[in-house]
């Protein structure tokens, strides 16, 4: 009888946990694609404006800024936070452009199987010979947060990439 009661209790806990998980995550992400364009201001002077890529003229060779904004609404601090961004298809990462305050930035050239800092990512060529991966080889970028996110924390991480 005691065993049966414990089993039912365990099932209730499992179900409750997964019900929470199906809800909106307390660590919310919003992706934005933008481009910098040069326009003349009211004084006729060139001025750089950042606009939504979907509303700009983006063609091969143009650079797009991929930004992920995060906000944390959980009750307890979030730790071991890692934001991962697969390189969008048809894009080539622009070396040295990934940023994220309070994070360690790592790259993968094997579809996320392994990560390393820029310049230390390894890739094998067609003959199986290992070499340092170039920016064009990167398939994923990730930002590993060095500290915990407290409730109400907000920020953004971003990188630039060119349209092939």
């Amino acid at each position: 009888m005691m065993k049966k009661a414990l089993f039912i209790l365990a099932m209730l806990i499992f179900t409750a946990t997964h019900a929470v998980a199906a809800d909106k995550s307390p660590l919310e992400l919003v992706s934005v694609n933008e481009v910098d364009i040069t326009v003349k201001n009211s004084k006729g002077v060139d001025e750089v404006q950042r606009v939504d890529a979907a509303k700009a003229k983006v063609v091969p060779g143009d650079t797009v800024i991929f930004t992920t904004r995060y906000s944390y609404a959980g009750g307890k601090p979030a730790t071991d936070v890692v934001i991962t961004n697969p390189m969008p298809e048809h894009m080539i990462y622009t070396d040295g452009t990934a940023e994220g305050k309070g994070t360690r930035i790592e790259f993968s050239a094997d579809k996320g199987a392994s990560y390393a800092p820029a310049g230390k990512v390894k890739i094998k060529d067609a003959k199986g010979k290992e070499r340092v991966a170039a920016a064009a080889d990167y398939t994923h970028i990730r930002w590993v947060f060095k500290g915990a996110l407290e409730k109400g924390a907000k920020g953004e991480v971003f990188f630039r990439a060119k349209v092939k």
Partner: peptide, 9 residues
């Protein structure tokens, strides 16, 4: 483009 996040509490 879609980003994902992993974390612990």
């Amino acid at each position: 483009n879609t980003a994902t996040v992993n974390f612990t509490v």
